[in-house]
């Protein structure tokens, strides 16, 4: 149980917490923080596994990879926060709507079509349908690869499904 292994396990723990967080939490700011937690976890694993090189000098390649990863993560986070700010300004909400529900479609770029509530309901059922089907398919072969895949997809649906029903105008302001 060297130092590297301990920190690698801690990195995996962060990966799990972040993954659970991004699926379960509905507020977008939580999701963005969860993304950062996942990336910190992965970077910790990357450097921790490299800590066990022969001789005292640590292996510089994973450090360079993590440096690049941190800069990529900060740019993705900054873009996501910009998107969130803009989304809040346009809709007054900070939660993603049901994937199928919000499909008024844009006629031409720049036409900021108002997101009319009555359109939201009729598109909602399509997505619910595949959520159940997705979970139904319990592939077994590859170490539960399918479950992980379906679960991730199934609960992303649930995650959004749940809040959409509760999301009637709760926006960011009420608590």
């Amino acid at each position: 149980m060297t130092t590297g292994t301990l920190y690698a396990l801690c990195g995996l723990g962060l990966f799990g917490i972040g993954l659970g967080g991004i699926i379960l939490r509905t507020h977008l700011l939580h999701k963005i923080i969860a993304t950062n937690v996942i990336s910190s976890g992965v970077f910790l694993v990357l450097v921790a596994l490299a800590d066990r090189t022969r001789g005292g000098r640590p292996d510089p390649v994973p450090h360079a990879m993590v440096l690049t990863g941190i800069v990529v993560a900060i740019s993705a986070t900054a873009l996501a926060l910009g998107l969130l700010r803009r989304f809040y300004r346009e809709t007054g909400r900070c939660r993603l709507p049901e994937p199928g529900s919000l499909a008024p479609g844009s006629l031409a770029p720049g036409s900021l079509e108002r997101w009319s509530p009555e359109r939201r309901s009729e598109g909602g059922d399509a997505e619910k349908g595949n959520a159940e089907k997705g979970n139904g398919e319990k592939g077994n072969a590859e170490k539960g690869n399918a479950e992980k895949g379906n679960a991730e997809k199934g609960n992303a649906e649930k995650g959004n499904g749940g809040e959409a029903s509760g999301g009637k105008g709760d926006g960011c302001r009420t608590w």
């Binding site: 379960l24 939490r25 507020h27 649930k158 509760g166």
Partner: peptide
């Protein structure tokens, strides 16, 4: 700011 309850 409240993050709202857990997903569902």
């Amino acid at each position: 700011q409240r993050g709202g309850a857990f997903a569902s």
